[in-house]
Design a protein around this nucleic acid. Structure first.
Length: 609
RNA sequence: GCGCCGGUGGUCCAGUGGUAGGACAUUGGCUUCCCAAGCCGAUAGCCCGGGUUCAAUUCCCGGCCGGCGCACCA
């Protein structure tokens, strides 16, 4: 069985994730997270929230998943998110009609043309199927938008779409969000939520679905002034795969630190570099195998229209290659994108400023107020009105803009402006032209956006793939998931060693203690002890607590044993210490090794290899 | 969306023109004082629709789902 098959099988059998709606035949691209998976995902989201919202001092919001058409007109998704497909009548292959047209004509942006025009271009240029060579003239060009369309309200309603990314929910609310940030840049807003894309052909199980969870941060900055604190991440070691190396046949990774990469301009944008550093440490902490992890820069053709520079975090999920192979050859392995880090400039806010009703700018005060000389006019409307009638207002506006553009035009006796192609001569006195000294305390700027965007489902898949381990315990093969404490779906399992009232009673008390401490606990008394250990190993529970007679005999304090998943090593410790110590490990404050040092370790005949 | 291959208990598979069998898992009991042991019992299945046939899980057609290749993945 391949890694992917083994993981799919384990995920189904143990309740991590599986294709949804099975009773009705299923629908491609939709997955349900089972009990283990939903908890794992929730733990990943909590860890993300802690790092990218709380620790960064950002604010989290939750916006609707359905938004009106106008939002996506502004964002460019309505136009840019659809594909024009043409199917060959001979061989049945589908091709991007716009790409074919771009290849055969001098048109560079065929995507923005209507389908009917593309059909004409295909016919007029005699474009043929790239696969079989049959002419495509006369074939229908179908518009396929990757957004799920819906209708808001009764009847025909107003058109709406399920959001294809969570980001727009933040951009659209920017005018209010900036108020909450007290109009001060820089500030960041995060959102964890579902997004929807009507993929043509969802594949690779949970890696590419039609409904998925994103965790996104929109960092709003003043590009002229705001700098990230790179000192916090300068030492973070990263494996980079820049565009230049990807384009080179013998291209290799650049192994460096964030600090070096910035100094040598491998990563051009400081904010992107900062978040690559933060993300690398975060991935490491939640259990991503750094040998199967890299940052890959987008090739220029791969970048979205708005992105000035973009790096992806990628994880290797195939497992068919060893670490040395993966280190030596960037082409080896099965890599998937798990996050993108884009510098989006002012694209998003400018577009919404243009299409929307509100101001998508921030007023930035200067350190010192500036005094500037400005040419102004104050047209005498009592003169302009009678003279120009209905166009008087437009003439006045034209005078104002002319004064800004070309003050010299007001030097003569009359000044001429153009309104709707007509020239109007205005008496210079009536324009009331003068040069004024004005004090400016600041200016309105459109913030730039740095966007770290994480795919939560793919991160969960990566964690399962990287946690997947096999070894031999007591000459029996074992499969286990070595999740980090704090990320694992279940924190601790409690067993009575045997079916025995006394042991079961203490075990139940231990369960209560641990749950009171806020831990996720499972209790199991079914089957022999080995079977129960293996059950927990398979879902990645880091610790199993076993209650035995030795622990309740002798009149001393009650004790139990704690068994660590990966090593199968055990220590015996007092029940009274148990919850606090497990809690401390769960919180990352100490490790199992501290328990091994401090308490009596339990000698068993169990051998692990 | 096109092509090839596949779809049988929860999982992984075998098999058949007369409605099915194994392994593992689950569950009840016995046993068992630390790593999937053993014994007895139990639960549970032929993806959906149509066609051919006395009879279809099996053959044919279509659909759905999955894997792979192509295309797609702002």
């Amino acid at each position: 069985m391949s890694d992917a098959e083994a993981i799919t099988e384990l995920a189904k059998r143990r309740g991590f994730f599986f294709g949804a709606n099975g009773a009705y035949g299923g629908v491609a691209g939709f997955y349900t997270f089972g009990p283990q998976g939903a908890t794992l995902k929730s733990n990943v989201e909590a860890a993300w929230r802690d790092r990218f919202t709380v620790k960064e001092g950002n604010e989290e919001i939750e916006a609707p998943t359905i938004m009106p058409e106008a939002v996506f007109e502004a964002s460019g998704h309505l136009e840019g998110f659809d594909d024009m497909l043409v199917e060959c009548g001979e061989c049945g292959e589908s091709h991007r009609a716009d790409h074919l047209v771009e290849g055969e004509t001098s048109i560079e942006e065929a995507e923005s043309l209507p389908a009917s025009e593309i059909e004409m271009l295909v016919r007029d240029h005699g474009i043929a199927c790239p696969t079989c060579g049959a002419p495509l003239a006369g074939r229908d060009v179908e518009d396929f938008n990757l957004m799920f369309a819906t209708s808001i309200g009764p009847g025909s309603g107003q058109p709406g779409y399920l959001r294809p990314e969570t980001a727009q929910g933040i951009f659209v609310e920017f005018p209010r969000l900036k108020e909450y940030a007290r109009n001060k840049l820089p500030f960041g807003v995060t959102q964890i939520g579902r997004a929807y894309r009507n993929e043509i052909s969802p594949r690779k199980g949970i890696v590419r679905t039609r409904e998925f969870t994103q965790a996104e941060l929109e960092q709003f900055v003043n590009p002229e002034r705001d700098e990230p604190d790179l000192s916090k991440v300068a030492d973070v070691a990263v494996r980079l795969y820049p565009a230049t190396e990807q384009e080179d046949e013998d291209g290799d990774y650049v192994r460096t630190t964030i600090g070096e990469a910035v100094a040598e301009n491998v990563i051009a944008n400081d904010w992107v570099a900062y978040y690559l550093g933060v993300a690398k440490k975060w991935y490491e902490r939640i259990g991503v195998d750094t040998d199967r992890f890299r940052f890959r820069q987008h090739l220029s053709g791969e970048r979205a229209h708005y992105a000035a520079d973009c790096w992806d975090a990628e994880s290797e999920i195939g497992g068919a290659h060893d670490a040395a192979e993966l280190a030596a050859d960037p082409a080896a392995g099965d890599w998937i994108e798990i996050a993108g880090f884009a510098y989006r400039g002012d694209y998003d806010l400018s577009k919404h400023g243009e299409y929307g009703d509100d101001e998508f700018t921030v007023f930035e005060q200067y350190d010192e107020p500036k005094t500037v000389e400005r040419a102004v006019v104050d047209p005498d409307m009592s003169v302009l009105g009678p003279e120009f009638g209905g166009v008087a207002g437009d003439v006045a506006d034209a005078l104002r803009s002319l004064a800004e553009r070309n003050p010299d035009a007001f030097e003569g006796e009359t000044v001429t402006v153009e309104v709707d192609g007509e020239e109007y001569a205005v008496d210079a006195d009536a324009a009331n032209f003068r040069v004024e000294e004005q004090t400016e305390t600041g200016e309105h700027i459109t913030p730039h956006v740095v966007e770290p965007s994480f795919g939560v489902d793919r991160t969960v898949y990566t964690l399962v793939a990287h946690a997947y381990s096999e070894d031999v315990v007591d000459e029996e093969e074992r499969t286990y998931l070595d999740f980090e404490p704090g990320i694992a779906p279940t924190d601790v399992a409690v067993f009575p060693l045997l079916s025995d009232e006394e042991l079961e009673s203490l075990a139940n008390r231990v369960v209560d203690d641990l749950r009171t401490a806020g831990l996720s606990v499972t209790y199991d008394e079914s089957g022999n002890i080995g079977r129960r250990y293996r059950r927990q190993d398979e879902v990645g529970t880091p610790f199993c607590v076993t209650v035995d007679h030795e622990g309740i005999e002798g009149g001393g304090p009650e004790t139990v044993t704690v068994r660590e998943r990966d090593t199968t090593a055990q220590v015996r410790l007092p029940v009274s210490d148990l919850a606090t110590r497990i809690e401390a490990i769960h919180a990352g404050e100490e490790s199992f090794e501290t328990l091994l040092d401090e308490y009596e370790s339990v000698q068993t005949d169990v051998s692990k290899s």
